[in-house]
């Protein structure tokens, strides 16, 4: 168990280091920082002068070493547009997204596992067909369109929810619902599939012959064994929610969160901020992986002995 944990820790450190490195090189090799920072009308001599002053004329590996030796002390440099540390800028919008993300993931997990169990326990029934159809609908939704349609229906036509903004619980409804739709569909599909697989196994027959109730069999035995793939899926969706879905949802609903800030940083090519945000995202991925690992251990105690 201890060895396994250390192995995972090393893996996580490598992941964070790798993500930051990849984002550094895509930014600095594919784009010219000087051309981003100066207006196009700057005379060429001034451009070269500036390049030298900023140290962008040094070999890329030297720049990388300079960057990484500061980054290990959590210094990612200052933002090019806002004169404050990039990590600060990357972390400032984070709580707002966490607020949405936690509610959305909780909603998708509880509803998704519930519906998936219900459908998987009765394959072929009317309820199962309904759940399967809705889950396919959920994973087919184009988020860029769905967010706008929800705003049109609930804010413009019905007028019961605010179009955009931040503050009250009412402002959270549309972002949460749109963020949860896709993960919900996926969770229903994966829960249903794994519970059907589990229910076909011999230990379920044993449980039946022992006279256990249907409820106990599904909730205490089948679900526990079906949990690992479900946890992996939800973890995966949570990571995607932070760096993918949130960009769309927060832009459309004007939610001052991580996705919104990330998109802004990418549009303005603010490289230090992009790298700092990649670092934050990688940390979150690692944190999610730890939670998924804990769920694995809870579901399967034999891991503890390894």
């Amino acid at each position: 168990m201890y060895k396994l944990a250390m192995h995972r820790l090393g893996h996580s450190a490598l992941l964070i280091f790798g993500v930051v490195t990849v984002i550094f090189f895509t930014n600095f090799l594919l784009g010219d920082p000087v051309r981003v920072m100066l207006p196009a009308s700057t005379p060429p001599e001034a451009v070269e002068e500036f390049r030298r002053q900023m140290g962008f004329d040094r070999p890329i590996l030297v720049q990388y070493w300079d960057f990484i030796s500061h980054a290990v002390f959590l210094d990612f440099g200052d933002s090019w547009w806002q004169k404050s540390p990039s990590l600060e800028i990357a972390l400032r919008p984070f709580p707002a997204t966490l607020q949405l993300g936690i509610v959305a993931v909780a909603l998708a997990s509880i509803l998704g596992i519930g519906i998936g169990l219900f459908a998987g326990a009765r394959p072929g029934s009317l309820w199962d067909k309904l759940a399967t159809s809705l889950s396919i609908l959920g994973v087919s939704l184009p988020l860029i369109w769905f967010t706008l349609m929800m705003a049109l229906i609930f804010s413009v036509w019905l007028g019961i929810l605010p179009t955009a903004g931040y503050g009250t619980a009412a402002h959270m409804v549309l972002p949460v619902v749109t963020l949860a739709a896709l993960p919900l569909g996926r969770t229903v599909q994966i829960t249903r599939a794994s519970i059907i697989d589990e229910l076909a196994k011999p230990y379920i027959t044993t449980a039946h012959s022992k006279g256990l109730s249907e409820r106990t069999i599904i909730l205490r035995h089948a679900l526990r064994n079906a949990l690992p793939p479900i946890a992996t899926e939800i973890g995966w969706e949570s990571a995607l929610l932070l760096t993918g879905y949130s960009i769309i949802v927060e832009s459309v609903y004007g939610w001052p969160g991580f996705g919104f800030a990330l998109y802004h940083a990418i549009l303005t090519r603010d490289m230090p901020v992009i790298i700092a945000m990649a670092f934050v995202a990688a940390m979150v991925v690692v944190f999610i992986n730890v939670i998924v690992d804990i769920i694995y251990v809870i579901a399967d105690p034999t891991i503890r002995k390894k």
């Binding site: 790798g18 895509t26 784009g31 995607l240 960009i247 549009l267 995202a281 991925v285």
Partner: peptide, 18 residues
């Protein structure tokens, strides 16, 4: 490794650069 990189972040960064 590649699967654990936040895909959208990488894709958007590359597209913004190239």
């Amino acid at each position: 490794f590649q699967i654990s990189i936040p895909y959208f972040l990488l894709a958007l960064t590359i597209m913004a650069a190239i």
